Simulated assay, not measured.
Amino acid sequence: MSVVTTARLPLFPLNSVLFPGLVLPLNIFEERYRAMMRDLLKTGTDASGSLGSEGEAGDEPRRFAVVAIRDGREVAPTAPGLPDQTAQPEKGPAAGFGADPIQAFHRVGCVADAATIRERSDGSFEVLATGTTRIRILSVDATGPYLTAEVEELPEEPGEEAGALAEGVLRAFRAYQKRLAGARERSLAGTADLPDEPSVVSYLVAAAAVLDVPAKQRLLQAPDTATRLREELHLLRAETAVIRHLPSLPAVELTRAPTSPN
Rank of each mutant, 00 (worst) to 15 (best):
N15L: 05
A68L: 08
E74P: 01
F19P: 07
P261N: 07
L235V: 01
A183T: 08
D193A: 13
L41Q: 13
V200Q: 06
T133G: 08
V66H: 08
R237L: 08
A189S: 13
F12H: 03
E60K: 08
V242Y: 07
S124Y: 02
T5A: 03
A94M: 01
E231R: 12
I69K: 02
R171T: 12
G92L: 02
S202H: 11
E231W: 04
A208L: 14
G49P: 04
P89A: 00
A57P: 06
D196Q: 05
Q103E: 14
Y33D: 02
T225A: 03
V17D: 14
P13W: 06
E232P: 00
R120E: 15
T259A: 11
P89F: 01
P89N: 09
L235A: 07
F29W: 06
D113S: 09
G44K: 00
P261Q: 07
T227R: 12
E197M: 06
V3T: 05
T86L: 09
D122A: 07
E152G: 11
V169S: 08
A257W: 13
T148A: 06
I117L: 12
R118E: 15
S260I: 11
T132W: 04
G144D: 13
T132F: 05
V108N: 08
G92N: 00
L138Y: 08
L18W: 05
G96P: 02
F105L: 05
A183F: 10
S260Q: 14
E156D: 15
R118H: 14
A226V: 11
E119N: 10
E253Y: 09
Y33F: 15
L229I: 01
G163Q: 13
V17S: 12
T148F: 01
H245E: 15
S16V: 10
I137S: 12
S48G: 05
D212I: 07
L18G: 10
P223Q: 12
Q85M: 08
A257P: 02
R237H: 02
M37G: 02
H245G: 05
E157S: 12
H245Q: 15
S187K: 11
G49T: 10
L14F: 11
D196E: 13
T130E: 13
Y203I: 02
L22W: 08
Y146T: 10
E152W: 07
I137F: 07
P10W: 04
R171L: 08
S16M: 09
T148S: 15
Y33N: 05
E253L: 14
V242R: 15
D141S: 03
S139N: 13
V108H: 08
Q88F: 02
S50E: 14
G98R: 07
Q85G: 06
S50F: 09
A114Y: 02
D84K: 00
P155Q: 11
S139F: 09
H234Q: 04
A172L: 15
V127M: 09
E167Y: 09
R256D: 11
E167R: 14
A149M: 05
P13Q: 04
L249W: 01
A87V: 01
P223G: 05
A65D: 05
R62V: 00
S48L: 11
A149H: 13
S2T: 10
L249M: 06
A172Q: 10
V23D: 11
